[in-house]
Amino acid sequence: MSKENLNQTKAIEKLKDLSESARICMFCTDLSKLPITARPMSLQETDKEGNLWFISGDQSNKNFEIKDDNKVQLFFMNKSNSEYKSVFGKAFIYKDKSTIEEKWSPLANAWFDGKEDPNVSIIRVTPDETYYWDTKAGKLVTMLSFVTAAISGKKTDNSDGIEGSLNVKNK
């Protein structure tokens, strides 16, 4: 497995690509208590600055936990492409109409009585530390490599894997 750390624009592009292709993550809060509290959340978007946006119920345990301690960890997995990502960062809750209007999705009507529902909130996660695991050639080529190694009895060098950190902040 090779290592490739990415910075700023390339890091944001990779973050956006991996998170939006997975779409669902395990959203973890209350990180100081074990076991950590995790629940599946659907990503609305990853913006051009690398922020990740979610729609959430303002009265949810997640929101209460964020209000107490805004450190969060997100785990994305796109099994079909063998892509994985871990994001540690800070979460911020928005209740203003303009942010709700901008980030609203009609799919959220399954949980809310429209965007005017007083329980609607928007969560923005700003990444502090992000790490990814990916394949250079895609899942099919990787699987063929493993199958060939298994049939031939030779070990795979796993050279088509790639991992690294994504630094989305300007330093």
Rank of each mutant, 00 (worst) to 15 (best):
M1F: 03
M1I: 06
M1G: 11
S2I: 01
S2P: 01
K3G: 05
E4S: 14
N5M: 11
N5V: 08
L6D: 08
K10C: 00
K10L: 07
K10V: 00
I12L: 06
E13V: 02
K14A: 09
K16L: 01
K16F: 01
K16G: 09
S19N: 08
S21T: 08
I24Q: 04
C25H: 02
M26V: 00
F27S: 07
C28T: 05
C28D: 01
C28H: 09
T29F: 08
D30L: 11
D30P: 15
K33F: 10
K33M: 14
K33V: 15
P35C: 07
A38F: 04
R39A: 07
S42I: 04
S42D: 08
S42W: 04
Q44H: 10
E45N: 13
E45V: 12
T46H: 01
D47T: 05
G50Y: 05
N51E: 11
L52F: 03
W53K: 13
F54E: 13
G57Y: 09
G57N: 13
G57A: 13
D58W: 06
S60Q: 04
N61Q: 15
F64V: 00
I66A: 05
K67W: 01
D69V: 04
Q73W: 01
Q73T: 02
F76I: 04
N78Y: 06
N78M: 06
N78C: 10
Y84C: 05
K85L: 13
G89F: 03
K90Y: 03
K90W: 05
A91V: 01
I93Q: 11
I93M: 09
I93V: 11
Y94T: 02
D96P: 13
D96A: 07
T99Y: 04
E102P: 00
S105E: 02
P106R: 00
P106M: 02
W111Y: 12
D113S: 08
K115E: 08
K115H: 03
E116A: 01
E116R: 00
P118D: 02
P118T: 01
P118S: 04
N119C: 00
V120F: 03
I122N: 04
R124F: 04
V125S: 08
V125E: 08
D128A: 09
E129R: 13
T130S: 14
T130P: 06
Y132T: 02
Y132G: 09
W133G: 12
A137K: 15
G138Q: 12
G138M: 10
L140E: 15
F146K: 14
A149E: 08
A150W: 03
S152F: 07
S152C: 11
S152L: 13
K154Y: 04
K154D: 11
K155T: 05
K155F: 02
T156I: 00
T156V: 00
T156K: 12
D157M: 04
D157A: 09
D160Q: 15
G164M: 08
S165G: 14
S165T: 14
N167H: 12
K171S: 10
